[in-house]
Amino acid sequence: MRIHQYERLWLIGAMVLIVGFIVTITYGAVGLGITMVDDQEATLPPDDIDDDERFADPRVEQVGEDEYEAYVVAMTFIYQPDPIEVPANSEVTFYVTSRDVIHSFTVVGTNTNTMVIPGEVSVMTVEFDEPGEYGVVCNEYCGSGHHDMEGELIVHPEDEFTLTELAVDAPESVAPGDDVELEATIDNGLLEDLDVTLEAEIGDETFEEDVTVAGDGSETVTITVDGEELGEGDHDWTISVDDETESGSVTVGDEEDGGDDS
């Protein structure tokens, strides 16, 4: 076959360029460790999401020192959880699955980007060095409300990040002579111990108690108030730990007992 001299040179140049591209991409994958979303995770049918311990309760979890896992569910047209909150200087592995159609999980302006296909779980590990806020969008058309599908990713300064959860068990009403017992449970999702001050307020009375919650553990604090001291009637209460606040009201006495009728 006759090939012109210039064309031969051009051909060689093109081949060198092509091989060069392949080499740089391979270097990016092997040398820099830019990994791809792949098939490492087992499949998860959408119907089983609610029974899956990761996704039944979409959340961020600490799994090691500076290591976190985020379980995210995408569906028309939201992400759960929203916002997703993680600390700076951490390595976060995202597990993302879809309840219905194909979505994407795309942290805007970064290369944290994956398709989210129902039946599959996408896994990506991302390092967050700096605090900041990012938008999360779905960039795969998923139906008529596609353009409304967005979420938020907040990277908090390391020392301001907590995974504290507060739950309060309180009666709706007590008899005039009984005590009012507020049972506050503080969950610490971090692996380190958590020193917090629990503040409670009921009627005119205030309480403060320092609590240490073990890493990945929980602590229950019971606040007891004499019903007679509060007096008959409705009393609002508030309990807060860090930025978590729970509130409600308790009725002392059974007059106009709103809870029992129907």
Partner: peptide, 29 residues
């Protein structure tokens, strides 16, 4: 997944706040 607007409402109703973990704390900055 038929592409109609009605489905939006039905899907959203299954996503009440009970499914969220509200433990994450907004810290002051």
């Amino acid at each position: 997944f038929p592409v109609v607007v009605e489905t939006v409402a039905s899907v959203l109703s299954t996503t009440d706040t009970g499914m969220y973990l509200e433990a994450l704390v907004e810290t002051e900055s």
